[in-house]
Design a protein around this nucleic acid. Structure first.
Lengths: 199, 199
DNA sequence: CCAAAATTAGACCGACCGGTCTATATAATC
DNA sequence: GATTATATAGACCGGTCGGTCTAATTTTGG
C-alpha cells in the first residue's frame, strides 16, 4: 500500500472510509438513529470489512469516529491559538470557524461529541469514557491557552470550563435555529471575560 | 371521571401516563434509542391507547412530551424569578435547581429538549418547530427578566441568548462528567454578567 | 336501559436492526 | 510459486422496530 498502516490513502482504505462515514452520520443524526446499513452504504464497504476492522461492531466504530473527531477539533483549536496572539482571539476565531462549518453543513452538524454524549446511558462505559475524554481534552487546550495569557490557574480553569459550556450550548441553539450567530456571540462574550481576567 | 378532559387525574389517564413515560425515556435515552414497547411498558398502556390518543404515533407523542417539558421548565423559571428579586438571582437559583435535578436523576436527565434537538433532521418539521419553540420561550422568559432589571433591550436579548447557551452546554458537560458543578458555575458567570449590565 | 362514542386490548405485519458466519479474493512472506 | 495473513463480500439469523387493524370493553348521553 502507498501509506503506512493507519493513514488514510488517497483512494482511501475501507477502514478510513468507514470511520469517515460513521463520523458524519453519527454527527448529523445521532448514534441510535443511524443504521449500520446506512454507514456501510455511505462508505461503500460490506459488512465483513466492518467486523474485520472493528470487532466490537457499531460501538467500536463509534469510539473510533469519536476519537478522530476529537483529534481534529483539538488540532483546530491549537492551530487557532497559534494563529491568534492570545486566548481571547483564539476563542473568537474558533467560534467563527465552528459557525462557518455549521453553515457549510446547512446546520446539520454541530458538535460531533455532544450528539453522542446525550445518548450515553449508565452502562455504556466505553462511550461514556470517550465523550468524557473529548471534553476533558478541549477543556485542557482552552485552559492552557488562557493560562498562557497570565490568568491565575484557578480562574483559567473555571473560564475554560465555562467557555466549553457556552460554545457547546450555542452550537445546539444555532443548529436548532439555523442561525450561526449564537456561536459567534458566545465566543465573543467568553473572549471578553477572558480579556477581563488577564493581569 | 373526576377531572375534565385533558387534565391528568390522580390515578392518571393513560394519555397522561404515556406523556410522562415518553418524556422520561426520551429525556434519558433520546428519541431514536427509545422503543415504543419501552414506553408502553413504562406507561402500562397497550398500543391501541397510544394510537388512539396520538394518531401520529411516536412523533406525535414526542411532540406532546416536548411541550409538557417546556411548559414545566418555563413555569419553574418564572417561579424562580418571583422568588428571587432580580434576573441575576433568578439565573443562579435556576442553575441550582437544574443542578439538583441532575443529581437527583443520577446524571441521567439533563435538558429534555436538547436530547431531542440533536436528533432532529431536515424534514422533521414538527420536531424542529417544537424544539425551536421551546428554546424561544425560554429565551423570552430570560429576556423579560433581564429587561425588567432595566438592562437595555438589545443587551438583554443578547444576554438571554448567551445565558441559554451557557446553561444548555453546562448541562451536557455536567451529565457527561457526572458532576453538577458546571451548571452552577455557568449560572454564576452569567448572573455576574447580568449584574454588570444593569444601569 | 340502551345506543353511540371513547378507549383499551393485543395479535399481527413487513421492514430493518445489529451481529455471525462461511467463502472468496487480494497481499505479504518465505 | 506456495503459504499464510489480511481483507472483502454478502447470505443469513433471531429479534425488535413503528405501525395497522379488528374486537372487546368501558364510559357517556339520551
Amino acid at each position: 500500500m502507498s501509506g503506512s498502516k493507519g493513514d488514510q490513502d488517497r483512494p482511501a482504505g475501507s477502514r478510513a472510509r468507514l470511520i469517515a462515514a460513521a463520523g458524519r452520520l453519527f454527527h448529523e443524526r445521532g448514534y441510535a438513529a443511524t443504521g449500520l446499513s446506512e454507514i456501510l452504504a455511505a462508505a461503500g464497504a460490506p459488512k465483513g470489512s466492518l467486523y474485520h476492522h472493528f470487532p466490537d461492531g457499531k460501538a467500536g466504530l463509534a469510539a473510533a469516529a469519536l476519537e478522530a473527531a476529537t483529534d481534529a477539533l483539538e488540532a483546530s483549536l491549537r492551530a487557532e491559538h497559534e494563529r491568534a496572539r492570545d486566548a481571547a482571539g483564539m476563542i473568537e476565531g474558533y467560534g467563527a470557524l465552528l459557525a462557518g462549518w455549521l453553515e457549510a453543513s446547512h446546520f446539520t452538524r454541530g458538535c460531533p461529541v455532544a450528539t453522542v454524549a446525550l445518548e450515553v446511558t449508565p452502562g455504556d462505559d466505553v462511550a461514556a469514557l470517550a465523550v468524557q475524554g473529548a471534553f476533558a481534552r478541549w477543556r485542557k487546550a482552552l485552559g492552557d491557552a488562557i493560562r498562557a495569557d497570565g490568568v491565575a490557574p484557578e480562574r483559567a480553569g473555571a473560564l475554560a470550563g465555562f467557555a466549553l459550556s457556552a460554545i457547546e450550548g450555542a452550537l445546539i441553539l444555532a443548529r436548532t435555529d439555523r442561525d450561526s450567530e449564537p456561536v459567534r456571540a458566545a465566543a465573543r462574550e467568553v473572549a471578553s471575560l477572558v480579556r477581563a481576567a488577564r493581569p
